[in-house]
Every structure is written in structure tokens, then in C-alpha cells.
Simulated assay, not measured.
Amino acid sequence: MVQYSSLKYAIKDSIGYIFINREPQVNALNQQTLDDLQDLFKHFNSDDQVRGIILTGAGDKAFAAGADIKEFLDLSVIQARWLSERGHIIFSDLIEDSPKPVIAAINGYALGGGLELALACHMRIASENAKMGLPEVSLGLIPGYGGTQRLPKLIGKGRAMQIILTGDMIDAQQAYEIGLVNEVVVQDKLIARAEEILQKIFTRSRVAVANAITSINAAEDKQQNGSKVEMDAFGHLFGTEDFKEGVSAFLAKRTPNFE
């Protein structure tokens, strides 16, 4: 399998694990990391062995503590625009629109681009020591990988304005209270809890899960009619073997055996 300079990965029990592996740099997202994430998510999204993905950071201090600011120094306006566009493409097309559930296991600092990466995932589980924020305004910038778009949808415009305009960090409990993360767990249970959620999803119909992700995402996509996407998906699923098996199992009061 491919070796990446900035990532470690594994596949076990139908779960694809991705570890951002730049611990001395608090797992900051440099351009090589974006390259590696792009390639690995493409691989996992097309690999039938992988039914769900857990994304986390190496060590226990950081999920990803922002972008690698040193790389910003020599960028032109055009290059910076392209960097932002590239981040949007990776985070939207490969992570948010992945047909497989993606859980961010936030194991420490998730700042700037690191929090934006977590926001692109379908769910977020945080350890008790996690700290989150979008501090770009303190650098004379704004979030450039979708943070200004995803955060308001997740926690509301007013709260998102406060987090982005102040650049302040919030802790895991505050993040949970405003809906930024789904759950908060102790550090040594973080990956196990993400695994537990995925294993439950794996007992459901794979094709139904993929269509549910597509329909939920369409609700927030101005380019699509979310209701039409849902209706089309609902109708399509009636023609699948999983639907026949699910209904048969329900009527027979047994556990379904989905393909």
C-alpha cells in the first residue's frame, strides 16, 4: 500500500483509520498533508473493504492545529485563492460527500484549517481535553476551507459570528452545548466510541446509509433541490435488494442480513 509522509492509515473491521502524522508540528495541515488526504480519501471512498472512516491526529495533543502558516508567507493572491479552492474541493467532494460515514475524533487542538477539516466530517466526537476555534482573523485572514459556510449551518449564525470574529477558542463541553460536536468522551475512549458508532451503522443497509448522506447534504446545497433528492432516493431504494431484505426481516421479527 502507498506510504504517506504526513499520514498513517489502517483498515480494520471495515473501518478506515486516518491519522494526521505531524505530531512535532501539532499536526498542522501543510500542502503535502492536503495532497495525502486527497489521495487517501479517494482510495477509501472507492475501497469496498471500507464502510466507514475515522479521522484523527497522531498523539494526544492535537487533531490538527491549523494550517502550516510558514507556507503562507510566499503565496501570491492568485496562489492563495487556489489554495482555498483546493481545500474546498477536498473537504467537500471527498469528505463531506463521501458515501461512507466519516467521524472526526478530535483528540486535542482543532484550530483553523484543522477545525474546518473536522467540520467537513459527518460527525465529530471530542475528547475532554479538546480545544476548538477559528483564529484566522488574528492573522488578518478568514477561514478559507469552508469554515464560514459550515459553522453557521451547524451552530447558528450568531454563535458562528462570535467564534469567527473573536478568534477565541472554546473547550469540548462548550462545543457540545452549542452542537459543534456530537459527544464528549474521556481521551482513552475516543477512538473506541467512534468505532462503536460506526459498527452500529454497519448493521444498517449500506446503500440506504449512502443515500441518507446524499439527501442530508442536499438540504444545505443551494445548487440542489433537497426535497427532490430525498424523493428520488426514497423511490430508488424501493428497487433494491436491501429494501426487500429489510422489510422481510421486520415482518419476520428477525435481524436483517443486508448484502
Rank of each mutant, 00 (worst) to 15 (best):
Q3V: 15
S5R: 14
L7A: 11
K12S: 15
D13P: 14
S14I: 09
I15N: 13
G16W: 12
Y17I: 12
Y17P: 14
Y17Q: 14
Y17N: 14
I20P: 08
N21G: 12
Q25P: 11
N27F: 11
N27V: 12
D35I: 03
D35R: 04
Q38M: 00
D39M: 04
L40S: 06
L40A: 05
F41A: 02
H43G: 09
H43P: 07
F44Y: 09
D47G: 08
D47L: 06
V50R: 09
G52P: 01
G57H: 10
A58F: 11
G59D: 09
F63Q: 06
A65L: 15
A67Y: 08
D68I: 12
K70E: 15
E71S: 14
L75T: 06
I78H: 08
I78K: 09
Q79P: 04
R81C: 10
R81Y: 10
L83V: 03
S84Y: 05
R86T: 01
F91W: 02
D93P: 04
L94W: 00
E96Y: 02
S98G: 02
P99G: 05
P99L: 04
P101E: 03
V102C: 02
A104K: 00
L111E: 09
A118W: 00
L119V: 00
C121T: 00
R124F: 01
I125C: 01
E128F: 05
N129S: 13
N129M: 11
K131M: 13
G133D: 02
L134M: 02
L134H: 02
P135K: 06
P135L: 07
E136V: 07
V137M: 08
G144V: 06
T148I: 12
L151N: 03
L151T: 03
P152W: 03
K153N: 08
L154Q: 10
G156F: 07
K157P: 07
A160D: 07
I163N: 04
I164H: 04
L165Q: 15
T166W: 11
T166A: 11
G167Q: 05
D168A: 13
A172Y: 03
A175F: 01
E177K: 14
E177P: 10
I178V: 13
I178M: 13
L180Y: 01
L180P: 02
N182R: 13
V184T: 04
V185N: 05
V185L: 03
D188W: 07
I197H: 07
I197M: 09
I201W: 07
R204S: 11
R206S: 06
A208I: 11
V209P: 05
A210T: 03
N211E: 10
N211Y: 08
A212H: 09
S215Y: 03
S215D: 05
A218S: 01
A219T: 04
K222Q: 03
Q223V: 00
Q224N: 00
G226L: 02
K228V: 11
E230H: 12
D232H: 08
F234Y: 13
F238W: 13
G239H: 10
G239L: 08
T240F: 09
F243L: 12
K244T: 14
V247I: 11
F250M: 09
L251F: 06
R254S: 13
R254F: 10
T255H: 12
F258V: 05
E259R: 07
